[in-house]
Design a protein around this nucleic acid. Structure first.
Lengths: 104, 104
DNA sequence: CTTTCATTTCGATGTTTAGCTAAATGTCGT
DNA sequence: ACGACATTTAGCTAAACATCGAAATGAAAG
């Protein structure tokens, strides 16, 4: 959970998650949305991966990242819950969030 | 919003919020729960105050901090909302334009 | 098999942050 | 006014972090 919050503490990383909210994207495609070097973005991806907030699918030359919504959801819900903050009707459908692959 | 997430990125600060969840506490009382110097805790309080997550009530010698739950709640809900977590009503509305984020 | 492309890793640098001790501030009781 | 108490501010260090350009990795294409 600490890793998740650390990952969320950076605006660039939060925006990466936002971008992945709609569709998976390659590292380069994501990087094109930000005014920083690709190496910098790669480091951000690593942090997000460490937190298990994104997953990487390697397909040939490119690496496609996708959001692991359930991980974000679980962390947010657990935290909010511990404050009695009610998230109305959570867990809609895990359609975009791929099957079990080392859930944290 | 950035300040809130930055504030939440530290475990000590998250724990402070948890402690304040039930009842307000003085700075010293809070500090007694952590193995760090009071001055260090004071810095943490400042960060939480900057993020508006806690409010200080000065009463004589002591300063009593209380949780500003609505601020935490608003931030959490807004963020979760933008991912379609919780609030099924908001999920029906596509929020493509995300608000610009200022890091101060 | 060499080049090209996508991405990561390496090494270096400036900034931020958490932590400390010591000193300052403000307040209470005497 | 003085001394004790609660908290913050100041000054510092060490670690963590964001960032970069350059080099390395690995896969496809010629």
């Amino acid at each position: 959970m600490n890793r998740v919050f650390k990952a969320l503490s950076d605006p660039t990383r939060r925006r990466v998650l936002q971008l992945l909210r709609e569709r998976p994207m390659s590292a380069g495609e994501l990087a094109d949305h930000f005014p920083v070097a690709k190496a910098t973005m790669s480091a951000h991806f690593a942090v997000l991966r460490e937190a298990d907030l994104i997953a990487a699918d390697k397909q040939g030359k490119t690496i496609t990242y996708r959001l692991r919504l359930s991980v974000l959801e679980d962390a947010l819900l657990a935290f909010a819950d511990s404050f009695g903050i009610g998230f109305p009707a959570a867990a809609a459908q895990p359609a975009l969030d791929k099957p079990r692959e080392e859930s944290a």
